[in-house]
Design a protein around this nucleic acid. Sequence first.
DNA 1: TGGCTATTTGGCATAATTGGCAAATACGCT
DNA 2: AGCGTATTTGCCAATTATGCCAAATAGCCA
Lengths: 99, 99
Amino acid sequence: MVNSSKYIQMALVMKAMAHPSRLFILEMLKEKEHCVCELQELIHSDMSTVSKHLSVLRNAGIITSRKHNNQVFYRLLCPCVLDAFQCVIEVGKNIDKET
Amino acid sequence: MVNSSKYIQMALVMKAMAHPSRLFILEMLKEKEHCVCELQELIHSDMSTVSKHLSVLRNAGIITSRKHNNQVFYRLLCPCVLDAFQCVIEVGKNIDKET
DNA sequence: TGGCTATTTGGCATAATTGGCAAATACGCT
DNA sequence: AGCGTATTTGCCAATTATGCCAAATAGCCA
């Protein structure tokens, strides 16, 4: 039951999202696609780090990419993941306030 | 921006959910509260492992617990986290099918 | 071809997660 | 108090994640 691939796969997707920079990236991709260099200016990290975050999200099936000239543009594949954000923010407010 | 506590806190919540056993637990708690021993029968793990998973979820503000006799019952604090499940399952189907 | 920019990959050190066992704690019961 | 059940905690080894640097790759343009 618990070992069904359903939960393993869900965990892969959620683990991919479970990082501050990657959540930020998803929110940035909400409006429109962005290239790596644009995201790197917003995130204060090495470009290689940003690139790796993007490949984590892509491997999880959350985003996809297209190449235009020598830039790579990423966009949300399933915008529905953003629907969970408001709830997660609410849950976050409970942190360390419960016994 | 990316370093705002908003994303850090969201990541804490999502990281707490990002484990097959913990996702399973959340689904079990959907209908009604359960004690640790009930969950342990469903999950094939040591009871201490199950207890630790539960405390991860509780520390993230997702579930809460009450003691009744010598048992501890856990229940969902924010059932809204389950709303994300269907989307995450859909996203999971994209895994390794995108370039 | 060579130079330039954009992106990805490999390597590596550090940090965090995971799960089992044993020990400790909590609680009811006699 | 002493016993049995339920749960948590401490410890530890193995695995996985993170982020930077340097090097490699890709594509444009002169």
